[in-house]
Structures are given as C-alpha cells and as structure tokens.
Amino acid sequence: MHIPDGFLSTPVWAALDVLAAPAVGLAVRKTRREFDEGRIPLLGVLGAFVFAAQMINFPVGVGTSGHLVGGALLAYVLGWPAASVVMTAILAIQALVFQDGGILALGANVTNMAIVGVLVGYLPFQLWGGGGATARKIAIFAGGFASVLVSALLALVQLALSGVPMPAPIAGISVGLFVVSALLEGAITLAVVQAIETINPGFVRTAGGSHRRGATIVLATAVFLAAVGVIFASAHPDGLEQLAIKTGISQRATNLFATPFSDYEAGFLQSAWLRKAAAGLAGLALVCGACIGFGRVVARKRSA
C-alpha cells in the first residue's frame, strides 16, 4: 500500500505533500505537549517493534498468512498524535532504506497511513473503548479494520485521480483484497491487544475521557473522506479498479522484495488474495455498509 514515486500526477503528490506537512507538524506539536524528549526512545523503539512485527506471521487459513500493520495498535498505546509521528517516521525509513514507497509520494503515504489511517483507527477505540468488555473488543477490532481499509481506499483514489488506468474488475478485486486485509488487521490488533494486556494492563491507554469531542470531529471527517472515496469510486469504477490493483500489487511487491526481511514469507497477500477475488464485490458492499453505519453513529452522537 506504499505508493512509489512516478505513479501520482504532480498535482496529486504535491497537494498531498502540502497537506501532510502541516498535519505532521500538528501531530508533532501535540506529541511534544504530552511527551517530553525523554520519551523519544519509547516512540522510536515501538516504531522498531511495529517494523519488526512484520516478521511474525499470522495464519489465516488456506496456507496463507498475514502480519500486523500496526497504526491502530500504536494509537491505542501512545494516543493518536504520537502514533502519527511514529508511523510517519516508519514510512520515511521504509521509503529511504527499503525503497518501499516514494519520497515525493511520502505526503500521500503519510496522509493515508500515518494521519488518516491512525485517526480512523483510533476513533472507534476513543468513542466506544470505554464501554463494556464486548464494546471495547468491537472497538479495537473496528479500529484495526478501518485503519487499513481507509488507508488502502485513499491510495486507490489517489492513483485513480492521477489517471492510472484501473479497469473495473481489477478495482473490484482490489477492494475485496482490502477488506480481507482490513479484517485480518482487526483480528490481529485485537488478539495482540488482549495478549499485551495479560502481560501488563497498563500498556494500553484508557479509552474515552476528555478527547471525545475531538474524536467525534475526527470521526466525522473520516466519514466524510470515506464517503468521498466511495462516491468517487462508484462514479469512476475504472479508477477504483486501478487503485485496487495498485494496492494489492504493492502489497505483493512489499512481501516479495521490499520488506526489510528478505526471508519474509511472501506470496500470501497476492496469489491467495487473487484466488479469493470472488469476494471482491461483496467487499464493495461491505465498505458502503460500514460507511453508512459510521454515519449513523455520528448522527446519534451529535443528537445525544
């Protein structure tokens, strides 16, 4: 899901660089307010942890496996501003050292995964994570799910906007793949959070509290973005398809070559996913449903 240089049209990458820079600046300022520089090692080491977590494979059946992406998990541990800063640092290192994602396209990748992906991952936790045990579990799962799905859809939209050709069947398959990987991220995030809390319940933040209003605003923004994405996607099925392919392929490329660990088990996302392509159309319906659900929740929160 890391867009390389050369794919986005100049207005798209430039606009996203311009958008991402102040957003990261804001995240850094908010992080500094909460953590002094003495906590930089914590942020850095947990960044290295998320990086290294790619080496631990999770079986998903039919001989394939996936791994943690980690944006939502970081947000549950560090809060969204610090998680955004850490994800930005990770993306920058992936782009520089691992040729995984471009430098000019860093604004796009940061927007998708470090800003929107982290915020969207954090929101359900912030809103419902303070409720009962089941609500909390659902919130944690939903955060991981939404984080990966929204990042991938944004990437698809950006590619489509850049005029990268994306025939409809391919877009459909891609969206299906996104949904599968998002479900997997939700499941992994939940399993890891539960395992972490058995070691020390203090690792994960307490949800809810003072940031609810902010969270609601961010959720509304996310729903808006997701809605724009879906409208765009349905209006330009070609673009959507292209995005899907790009993202799916990018995952593959990552697995095969660009991860830090060459012996990393490749091939899971790609071939198996393609085999599961039939799930694609169902995936699209799922995305629309999720967006409608999000919208209803926001409406309810506002009227409450």
Partner: peptide, 17 residues
Amino acid sequence: FLLMVGQFVYRYLFVIA
C-alpha cells in the same frame, strides 16, 4: 523531534528485528 524518533526507530530496528 520527528527526526529523532526516526533515528531511534532505525537504531532499534537492528535490535528488535
């Protein structure tokens, strides 16, 4: 601040990986 975080990510990638 961001660059220092990046520096620590890279430094400890060698350890945690």
